[in-house]
């Protein structure tokens, strides 16, 4: 009587990691053996269950933290990039901050930046009857960092 397939081989078969003579032997055995077929199906069911597990994504604050810390920081960029593509640390760090939504690419000359308008809108939200003062403070001080970081001293208009 043919021996049952070793359990490990059934697992490997379900993973497509069995080949050559071992695979031929296993498949031949399965043709005749209900018990092993059931075991294979049971393992496949478990695999399907695991594969269907919803993927957890990086929590937003952690993702931001990592981006902030590691994007553009040497020596990692050195390991990843060729000199032609290396971007100065400061600019990348700034771009990687929460306002990465804002593009720094060239735009048609004469276009106005959005940040001052955003700052004005968010700052005005702080005057609402029902503000969430912590939320709006976060919102309006944010675009200010881009708008005014390089501004000359004195009053801006």
């Amino acid at each position: 009587m043919k021996e049952h397939i070793v359990g490990e081989e059934i697992s490997a078969l379900s993973d497509g990691a069995l080949s050559g003579a071992a695979r031929a032997r296993a498949e031949a055995h399965l043709a005749d053996c209900g018990a092993c077929r059931r075991e294979l199906e049971s393992l496949r069911h478990l695999k399907r269950l695991l594969a269907a597990a919803p993927r957890r994504t990086l929590p937003a604050d952690l993702a931001l933290n990592l981006e902030h810390r590691y994007v553009g920081a040497r020596p990692w960029t050195a390991a990843f990039t060729r000199p032609a593509f290396w971007v100065p640390v400061g600019a990348v760090a700034a771009a990687a901050l929460a306002f990465s939504v804002w593009s720094r690419s060239l735009s048609p000359a004469g276009d106005l930046p959005l940040e001052p308008l955003l700052a004005a809108h968010e700052r005005y939200s702080a005057e609402a009857l029902v503000p969430e003062p912590n939320l709006v403070a976060s919102s309006y001080s944010d675009p200010l960092t881009l708008t005014y970081a390089d501004a000359a001293d004195g009053t801006t208009e």
Partner: peptide, 26 residues
């Protein structure tokens, strides 16, 4: 830039009017 602010008591809505186009996020 002319900034008109509207409210419905809870939600704030801004309308800006400019003479030049504004660069939107990419």
């Amino acid at each position: 830039v002319r900034h008109a602010r509207y409210t419905d008591g809870l939600t704030v809505l801004s309308v800006f009017q400019t003479d030049r186009p504004v660069r939107l996020p990419k």
